[in-house]
Nucleic acid binder design. Structure first.
Lengths: 230, 230
DNA sequence: AGCGTAACGGCACTGCGTGCCACTGTACAA
DNA sequence: TTGTACAGTGGCACGCAGTGCCGTTACGCT
């Protein structure tokens, strides 16, 4: 305990204890199962007291996704520092890329977490809640941006939900494949295709031009579409 | 206790006990707060033992949204009994309407639940998980329907998420207003507008016609759009 | 060297959720 | 009518998550 007491004093020490706790939790969950692992087990494996565990994580589930708040803040920063005239589509795409970066930072841990969250119902539901936090963040920003537009709230809700869903689809496919380093670009490209499915700018009084432009884009996309191979 | 023991015997008795428990839970949560209400309190208020509570509900949170599974099954039935040639857009709209029906069945209870789930973080996260179950259901069905299409999975994910998000937007606006009887139609209409934002059928080899049709629709929509009032 | 501070471990407590069991009212058979 | 199988109930005890409290201990600062 003397060692542990010393470890937590400096900021580096705290980070080390935190890493040990996450590693112990993930390993124990993987080997012994989530339900059959107690907080005592995790704390003991990391060499700290049970009470200390709860000083690092709010709950047992928290040990699995401890960076959620940080990731959320990073995405929020992307929105806040964006140039006001930047179109919405590339911006939400850029925000999504930020999340990819976080997951790609530690692929092994990401894969372990992915498997756990898709096997344990309790963690699965928690994951849903986390994803919904992202959805709300996207939607909140878009709602501000579309304020005053006809159906602005609806467009914000739809685009926010759609982007997050596409993001998860791409991310989970990559994780299910074991998060290969050479698969990340395909993941990102898959995500970007959502942009083609988003509803465009609302039709105002004077932008019939925009509508015809959308048609042109659609025709161009049509021409370069290769026929499906079946 | 003799009374309670008798109540639970017949199917009607079980339904009655169930209703009493839900009513007691909602009322206690509303008056005393969710965290400050124990399962003992709920059981005592309903006149049954604490152990019996857990025979009716899996958890304390379950007492708030006990019909989730039923509602999910009802929506699944809409998808399964749908005619194979029915277009996707009206079908997912119809599935959404089904959920409206369920909420409109007991507006008072729906409003109480809405307020609770938006004030208590634990219930809020649980609500996210529930909503995600709907999203998965929608997406699963659409994925089967789009199987083989280019970007079929992506379209399914996007449309499923978008429809559920729009549904929640409309539903929550109605609930936040106190679920007025004369506001339900506006709620439904608001939900239906999501159909205009959904990506159309994928551009194949021979459906340039569909694209031009979408343009025509867009122009028509443009013409009947009243200018925003700001 | 002395002192304030902050993180630690341990303890006790509340409350959720579950396994177990004895009890009781009900339905059905002898 | 009496006996019996059964299903739902309440109570008890237990494990575990999460929290408040407190004495202890190591580190930084003066």
């Amino acid at each position: 305990m003397t060692v542990a007491a010393r470890r937590g004093r400096s900021p580096e020490g705290r980070a080390e204890v935190r890493r040990d706790l996450v590693a112990a939790a993930v390993e124990l969950f993987r080997v012994r199962g989530y339900e059959d692992t107690t907080v005592d087990d995790i704390a003991a494996a990391a060499g700290v007291g049970r009470r200390t565990f709860f000083r690092y994580f709010r709950s047992k589930e928290d040990a699995i996704s401890p960076d959620h708040e940080t990731a959320l803040a990073r995405v929020a920063e992307v929105f806040e520092t964006a140039h006001p005239t930047e179109p919405s589509a590339p911006l939400v795409l850029r925000a999504g890329e930020t999340v990819f970066d976080i997951y790609a930072d530690d692929p092994r841990l990401s894969v372990d977490r992915y498997r756990l969250t898709h096997e344990v119902p309790a963690l699965r539901d928690r994951e849903s809640a986390s994803v919904d936090h992202y959805r709300r963040l996207f939607t909140r920003y878009l709602r501000r941006r579309f304020a005053g537009d006809p159906d602005g709230d609806l467009r914000a809700a739809v685009i926010g939900a759609a982007v997050v869903a596409a993001h998860n689809l791409a991310l989970r496919a990559w994780l299910a494949a074991g998060a290969p380093a050479d698969g990340m670009e395909a993941c990102r490209e898959r995500f970007r295709r959502v942009a083609e499915m988003l509803p465009g700018e609302p039709a105002g009084d004077d932008d019939l031009h925009a509508v015809t432009q959308r048609l042109e884009q659609a025709v161009v996309r049509l021409e370069r579409t290769t026929p499906p191979e079946h």
